[in-house]
Computed example of a mutant assay.
Amino acid sequence: MPIINASILAGRTVDQKRALIRELAEGTQRALGVREEQVRVIITEVSPEHWGAGTRSKADLEGNA
């Protein structure tokens, strides 16, 4: 059973997260030849304060800290 973990910045819409789940699951089905019901997708939303790029947080880079 493939389990896909996707970490994304918080703030995406429900529809965007649904689309991500669909695309990841469909791609996994094609690549691995598994059935839809075998694929699991877990989305973890991370706040900009907890997402680092280089030495700075995403919030710092966007001027939100």
Rank of each mutant, 00 (worst) to 15 (best):
V14W: 02
A65G: 13
T28M: 04
V14Q: 15
K58V: 08
E45K: 09
R35F: 00
L24I: 12
L32H: 08
T28L: 00
A31P: 02
E37S: 10
I4C: 04
E62N: 11
P2H: 01
G33I: 08
D60V: 06
L20M: 15
R18N: 13
Q38W: 01
H50N: 15
T44K: 13
K58H: 07
I3Q: 05
Q29R: 04
E36H: 08
A53Y: 13
V39D: 05
V39F: 04
G33M: 10
T28I: 02
T55N: 12
N64A: 13
V46N: 05
A6H: 07
W51L: 03
E62Q: 14
A65W: 09
G11V: 06
K58G: 01
T28Y: 00
M1N: 09
G27C: 08
I3A: 07
I42E: 05
G52V: 08
L20D: 00
Q38K: 00
L24H: 05
E45I: 10
L61Q: 07
L61N: 04
I43N: 02
G11I: 03
L20T: 03
N64D: 11
I3T: 11
E37G: 06
T55L: 10
I21F: 04
T13I: 09
Q16L: 12
R12Q: 10
G63K: 07
E45Q: 13
R22G: 02
Q29L: 05
M1S: 12
L9D: 02
A53S: 10
E49Y: 03
E36C: 01
I4R: 04
N64K: 15
S7D: 12
L61C: 03
G54C: 12
T28P: 01
V41R: 02
V14T: 13
V41E: 01
N5F: 08
T28E: 00
A6E: 06
E23L: 14
T55M: 09
L20G: 01
S57I: 04
A59F: 05
A65N: 10
V39I: 09
P48G: 00
E37W: 07
E26F: 07
T28V: 07
H50I: 02
A10D: 14
E36N: 05
R35N: 06
V34H: 00
G63Y: 06
A31R: 04
L9V: 08
G54A: 10
R18K: 15
L24K: 01
V46Y: 05
A65D: 13
T44D: 13
G27A: 11
Q16K: 15
K58L: 09
G27S: 14
A65K: 14
P48I: 05
S7Y: 11
R40V: 04
E23H: 14
I3S: 03
R40M: 09
I42L: 14
S47K: 10
T44S: 14
Q29P: 00
